[in-house]
Amino acid sequence: MILLNLKSMCTRKGLSVTFLIVFLCLPLYPQTQETDYYNLQNTLKFSDFLIRTRQYELAAQELERAAFLAPGNRGVQLKLLKTYRLGKQYHQSISTVERLYMNRLMEMPAEFGKEYLRSLILSGDYDRADYFIGTAGNLEQADRNNYTLSILLLKRNWEEARAFAAENLPVNMRLAGIAGESESIRYKSAGLALAMSAIVPGSGKIYTGKWKDGLISLVFVAANAYQAYRGFNKHGIESVHGWVFCTLATGFYAGNVYGSYKSARIYNNRLDEALQQKALDTFRSGL
Protein backbone atom coordinates (compact mmCIF):
# COMPACT_ATOMS: atom_id res chain seq x y z
CA MET A 1 0.00 0.00 0.00
CA ILE A 2 2.80 2.33 0.93
CA LEU A 3 4.48 1.55 -2.36
CA LEU A 4 1.27 2.41 -4.25
CA ASN A 5 0.98 5.64 -2.34
CA LEU A 6 4.57 6.39 -3.12
CA LYS A 7 3.85 5.97 -6.79
CA SER A 8 0.92 8.36 -6.71
CA MET A 9 2.90 10.81 -4.58
CA CYS A 10 5.82 10.97 -6.91
CA THR A 11 4.82 14.31 -8.39
CA ARG A 12 7.42 17.01 -8.73
CA LYS A 13 6.28 18.93 -5.62
CA GLY A 14 5.38 15.96 -3.49
CA LEU A 15 8.48 13.98 -4.28
CA SER A 16 10.75 15.79 -1.87
CA VAL A 17 8.23 15.49 1.02
CA THR A 18 7.65 11.80 0.35
CA PHE A 19 11.33 11.18 0.10
CA LEU A 20 11.93 13.01 3.38
CA ILE A 21 9.30 10.99 5.27
CA VAL A 22 10.55 7.67 3.91
CA PHE A 23 14.14 8.66 4.54
CA LEU A 24 13.37 9.45 8.20
CA CYS A 25 11.22 6.42 8.90
CA LEU A 26 12.91 3.60 7.03
CA PRO A 27 15.84 3.16 9.43
CA LEU A 28 13.30 2.52 12.19
CA TYR A 29 11.76 -0.41 10.37
CA PRO A 30 13.91 -3.14 12.00
CA GLN A 31 12.73 -2.22 15.48
CA THR A 32 9.12 -2.93 14.55
CA GLN A 33 10.07 -6.59 14.48
CA GLU A 34 8.75 -8.39 17.57
CA THR A 35 11.50 -9.53 19.95
CA ASP A 36 10.56 -12.63 21.85
CA TYR A 37 12.17 -12.34 25.28
CA TYR A 38 11.25 -15.95 25.99
CA ASN A 39 13.03 -17.46 23.00
CA LEU A 40 16.05 -19.68 23.45
CA GLN A 41 18.68 -17.03 22.86
CA ASN A 42 17.15 -14.50 25.24
CA THR A 43 16.37 -17.15 27.84
CA LEU A 44 20.02 -18.15 27.86
CA LYS A 45 21.14 -14.53 28.11
CA PHE A 46 18.79 -13.92 31.03
CA SER A 47 19.81 -17.14 32.77
CA ASP A 48 23.45 -16.05 32.50
CA PHE A 49 22.51 -12.80 34.22
CA LEU A 50 20.72 -14.74 36.99
CA ILE A 51 23.75 -16.99 37.44
CA ARG A 52 26.06 -13.98 37.61
CA THR A 53 23.88 -12.48 40.34
CA ARG A 54 23.84 -15.83 42.15
CA GLN A 55 20.11 -16.38 41.82
CA TYR A 56 20.64 -20.02 40.99
CA GLU A 57 17.13 -21.24 41.71
CA LEU A 58 15.60 -18.73 39.29
CA ALA A 59 18.36 -19.42 36.76
CA ALA A 60 17.58 -23.15 36.90
CA GLN A 61 13.90 -22.43 36.15
CA GLU A 62 14.96 -20.48 33.06
CA LEU A 63 17.36 -23.19 31.95
CA GLU A 64 14.68 -25.85 32.37
CA ARG A 65 12.64 -23.92 29.82
CA ALA A 66 15.69 -23.48 27.59
CA ALA A 67 16.27 -27.23 27.71
CA PHE A 68 12.65 -27.75 26.72
CA LEU A 69 12.99 -25.26 23.82
CA ALA A 70 16.20 -26.90 22.61
CA PRO A 71 15.88 -30.61 23.28
CA GLY A 72 19.20 -32.34 22.81
CA ASN A 73 21.25 -29.15 23.23
CA ARG A 74 24.09 -30.42 25.38
CA GLY A 75 25.37 -26.96 26.26
CA VAL A 76 22.04 -25.99 27.76
CA GLN A 77 21.67 -29.28 29.60
CA LEU A 78 25.14 -29.01 31.05
CA LYS A 79 24.55 -25.43 32.18
CA LEU A 80 21.34 -26.54 33.85
CA LEU A 81 23.15 -29.28 35.78
CA LYS A 82 25.84 -26.84 36.84
CA THR A 83 23.25 -24.31 38.00
CA TYR A 84 21.48 -26.94 40.08
CA ARG A 85 24.81 -27.83 41.67
CA LEU A 86 25.71 -24.21 42.38
CA GLY A 87 22.27 -23.72 43.93
CA LYS A 88 22.92 -26.80 46.10
CA GLN A 89 19.98 -28.60 44.46
CA TYR A 90 22.04 -31.77 44.10
CA HIS A 91 19.11 -34.16 43.93
CA GLN A 92 17.56 -32.14 41.10
CA SER A 93 20.86 -32.33 39.23
CA ILE A 94 21.12 -36.09 39.76
CA SER A 95 17.54 -36.77 38.71
CA THR A 96 17.94 -34.55 35.62
CA VAL A 97 21.00 -36.55 34.48
CA GLU A 98 19.17 -39.80 35.15
CA ARG A 99 16.20 -38.54 33.15
CA LEU A 100 18.41 -37.48 30.25
CA TYR A 101 20.46 -40.68 30.15
CA MET A 102 17.89 -43.20 31.27
CA ASN A 103 19.22 -46.79 30.92
CA ARG A 104 22.50 -45.58 29.43
CA LEU A 105 24.09 -43.78 32.35
CA MET A 106 27.41 -45.44 31.70
CA GLU A 107 27.55 -44.10 28.15
CA MET A 108 27.00 -40.45 28.96
CA PRO A 109 29.66 -37.97 27.73
CA ALA A 110 32.53 -37.22 30.10
CA GLU A 111 31.36 -33.67 30.89
CA PHE A 112 27.95 -34.97 32.00
CA GLY A 113 29.58 -37.79 33.90
CA LYS A 114 31.74 -35.34 35.83
CA GLU A 115 28.77 -33.10 36.66
CA TYR A 116 26.80 -36.17 37.76
CA LEU A 117 29.68 -37.27 39.97
CA ARG A 118 30.06 -33.82 41.53
CA SER A 119 26.41 -33.78 42.51
CA LEU A 120 26.53 -37.34 43.84
CA ILE A 121 29.60 -36.58 45.95
CA LEU A 122 28.30 -33.25 47.24
CA SER A 123 24.99 -34.86 48.19
CA GLY A 124 26.99 -37.43 50.19
CA ASP A 125 25.97 -40.40 48.04
CA TYR A 126 29.51 -41.85 47.96
CA ASP A 127 28.48 -45.44 47.18
CA ARG A 128 26.69 -44.51 43.96
CA ALA A 129 29.55 -42.19 43.04
CA ASP A 130 32.05 -45.02 43.59
CA TYR A 131 30.00 -47.41 41.47
CA PHE A 132 29.71 -44.84 38.67
CA ILE A 133 33.45 -44.19 38.63
CA GLY A 134 34.07 -47.90 38.25
CA THR A 135 31.58 -48.43 35.44
CA ALA A 136 31.36 -45.17 33.44
CA GLY A 137 32.74 -45.63 29.96
CA ASN A 138 33.71 -42.08 28.98
CA LEU A 139 35.65 -40.83 32.00
CA GLU A 140 39.35 -40.19 31.66
CA GLN A 141 41.73 -41.95 34.02
CA ALA A 142 42.81 -38.67 35.66
CA ASP A 143 39.19 -37.83 36.44
CA ARG A 144 38.55 -41.29 37.84
CA ASN A 145 41.58 -40.90 40.11
CA ASN A 146 40.61 -37.43 41.29
CA TYR A 147 37.04 -38.32 42.11
CA THR A 148 38.03 -41.54 43.87
CA LEU A 149 40.60 -39.65 45.93
CA SER A 150 38.02 -36.96 46.75
CA ILE A 151 35.59 -39.59 47.99
CA LEU A 152 38.26 -41.19 50.18
CA LEU A 153 39.18 -37.82 51.67
CA LEU A 154 35.57 -36.79 52.25
CA LYS A 155 34.92 -40.15 53.91
CA ARG A 156 37.99 -39.49 56.09
CA ASN A 157 39.70 -42.69 54.97
CA TRP A 158 43.08 -41.04 55.32
CA GLU A 159 45.25 -44.12 55.10
CA GLU A 160 43.50 -45.42 51.99
CA ALA A 161 43.65 -41.93 50.48
CA ARG A 162 47.42 -41.74 51.02
CA ALA A 163 47.95 -45.17 49.48
CA PHE A 164 45.69 -44.32 46.54
CA ALA A 165 47.45 -41.00 45.87
CA ALA A 166 50.82 -42.77 45.92
CA GLU A 167 49.80 -45.62 43.63
CA ASN A 168 47.54 -43.92 41.10
CA LEU A 169 48.85 -41.26 38.77
CA PRO A 170 47.97 -38.72 37.48
CA VAL A 171 46.17 -37.22 40.44
CA ASN A 172 45.30 -33.67 41.49
CA MET A 173 48.25 -32.27 43.43
CA ARG A 174 46.14 -30.32 45.92
CA LEU A 175 44.15 -33.43 46.82
CA ALA A 176 47.35 -35.47 47.05
CA GLY A 177 48.74 -32.78 49.35
CA ILE A 178 45.73 -33.06 51.67
CA ALA A 179 46.11 -36.83 51.72
CA GLY A 180 49.78 -36.31 52.66
CA GLU A 181 48.83 -33.86 55.40
CA SER A 182 46.69 -36.50 57.04
CA GLU A 183 49.87 -38.38 57.93
CA SER A 184 50.95 -35.60 60.26
CA ILE A 185 47.73 -35.65 62.28
CA ARG A 186 48.48 -36.55 65.88
CA TYR A 187 45.41 -38.11 67.42
CA LYS A 188 44.74 -38.48 71.13
CA SER A 189 43.94 -42.02 72.20
CA ALA A 190 40.43 -42.13 73.70
CA GLY A 191 41.34 -45.36 75.55
CA LEU A 192 44.44 -43.80 77.05
CA ALA A 193 42.48 -40.69 78.14
CA LEU A 194 39.92 -42.97 79.81
CA ALA A 195 42.62 -45.02 81.57
CA MET A 196 44.48 -41.91 82.71
CA SER A 197 41.35 -40.40 84.26
CA ALA A 198 40.52 -43.74 85.88
CA ILE A 199 43.92 -43.76 87.60
CA VAL A 200 44.36 -40.02 88.31
CA PRO A 201 41.04 -38.12 88.01
CA GLY A 202 41.31 -35.23 85.56
CA SER A 203 44.59 -36.37 83.97
CA GLY A 204 42.74 -37.68 80.88
CA LYS A 205 41.26 -34.24 80.31
CA ILE A 206 44.68 -32.61 80.74
CA TYR A 207 46.00 -35.08 78.13
CA THR A 208 43.34 -33.87 75.64
CA GLY A 209 44.34 -30.25 76.20
CA LYS A 210 41.63 -29.28 78.68
CA TRP A 211 43.95 -28.68 81.61
CA LYS A 212 41.58 -26.32 83.43
CA ASP A 213 38.76 -28.90 83.42
CA GLY A 214 41.25 -31.56 84.44
CA LEU A 215 42.52 -29.65 87.48
CA ILE A 216 39.00 -28.81 88.68
CA SER A 217 38.00 -32.46 88.32
CA LEU A 218 41.03 -33.54 90.31
CA VAL A 219 40.25 -31.13 93.15
CA PHE A 220 36.54 -32.04 93.21
CA VAL A 221 37.04 -35.80 93.24
CA ALA A 222 39.92 -35.66 95.71
CA ALA A 223 38.08 -33.37 98.14
CA ASN A 224 34.89 -35.41 98.07
CA ALA A 225 36.69 -38.74 98.29
CA TYR A 226 38.67 -37.43 101.25
CA GLN A 227 35.46 -36.32 102.99
CA ALA A 228 33.89 -39.72 102.35
CA TYR A 229 36.98 -41.35 103.85
CA ARG A 230 36.79 -39.06 106.90
CA GLY A 231 33.11 -39.85 107.37
CA PHE A 232 33.51 -43.61 107.18
CA ASN A 233 36.63 -43.45 109.31
CA LYS A 234 34.86 -41.54 112.09
CA HIS A 235 31.38 -43.10 112.14
CA GLY A 236 31.95 -46.35 110.33
CA ILE A 237 29.91 -47.72 107.41
CA GLU A 238 26.69 -46.09 108.71
CA SER A 239 28.05 -42.56 108.36
CA VAL A 240 25.54 -40.44 106.39
CA HIS A 241 28.24 -37.88 105.79
CA GLY A 242 30.48 -40.59 104.33
CA TRP A 243 27.75 -41.88 102.01
CA VAL A 244 26.79 -38.41 100.78
CA PHE A 245 30.37 -37.58 99.85
CA CYS A 246 31.03 -41.07 98.55
CA THR A 247 28.08 -40.68 96.15
CA LEU A 248 29.27 -37.23 95.06
CA ALA A 249 32.83 -38.42 94.57
CA THR A 250 31.78 -41.55 92.66
CA GLY A 251 29.40 -39.59 90.43
CA PHE A 252 32.00 -37.00 89.66
CA TYR A 253 34.70 -39.63 89.14
CA ALA A 254 32.57 -41.67 86.72
CA GLY A 255 31.52 -38.55 84.86
CA ASN A 256 35.11 -37.45 84.56
CA VAL A 257 36.29 -40.84 83.24
CA TYR A 258 33.59 -40.85 80.57
CA GLY A 259 34.17 -37.14 79.89
CA SER A 260 37.86 -37.76 79.22
CA TYR A 261 37.04 -40.50 76.73
CA LYS A 262 34.57 -38.20 74.98
CA SER A 263 36.95 -35.27 75.08
CA ALA A 264 39.61 -37.29 73.20
CA ARG A 265 37.04 -38.28 70.58
CA ILE A 266 35.92 -34.67 70.16
CA TYR A 267 39.56 -33.58 69.86
CA ASN A 268 40.22 -36.19 67.13
CA ASN A 269 37.00 -35.37 65.34
CA ARG A 270 37.98 -31.70 65.21
CA LEU A 271 41.28 -32.58 63.53
CA ASP A 272 39.51 -34.82 61.00
CA GLU A 273 36.86 -32.22 60.36
CA ALA A 274 39.41 -29.51 59.57
CA LEU A 275 41.12 -31.70 56.97
CA GLN A 276 37.81 -32.91 55.54
CA GLN A 277 36.69 -29.29 55.15
CA LYS A 278 39.91 -28.53 53.31
CA ALA A 279 39.22 -31.44 50.95
CA LEU A 280 35.65 -30.27 50.45
CA ASP A 281 36.77 -26.72 49.66
CA THR A 282 39.27 -28.06 47.14
CA PHE A 283 36.62 -30.28 45.58
CA ARG A 284 34.12 -27.40 45.36
CA SER A 285 36.66 -25.06 43.81
CA GLY A 286 37.03 -27.53 40.95
CA LEU A 287 39.47 -30.32 40.22
Partner: peptide, 18 residues
Protein backbone atom coordinates in the same frame (compact mmCIF):
# COMPACT_ATOMS: atom_id res chain seq x y z
CA UNK B 1 -1.19 17.83 -5.80
CA UNK B 2 -0.21 19.77 -2.68
CA UNK B 3 3.37 19.34 -1.44
CA UNK B 4 2.02 17.84 1.86
CA UNK B 5 -1.14 16.01 0.81
CA UNK B 6 -3.53 13.71 2.71
CA UNK B 7 -1.51 10.70 1.55
CA UNK B 8 1.61 12.30 2.94
CA UNK B 9 -0.16 12.59 6.26
CA UNK B 10 -1.04 8.88 6.19
CA UNK B 11 2.55 8.03 5.39
CA UNK B 12 3.76 10.34 8.15
CA UNK B 13 1.44 8.74 10.78
CA UNK B 14 2.41 5.22 9.71
CA UNK B 15 6.05 6.17 9.77
CA UNK B 16 5.75 7.82 13.19
CA UNK B 17 4.32 4.67 14.69
CA UNK B 18 7.71 3.09 14.05
Amino acid sequence: MKPFSKKHWILFVLGSSL
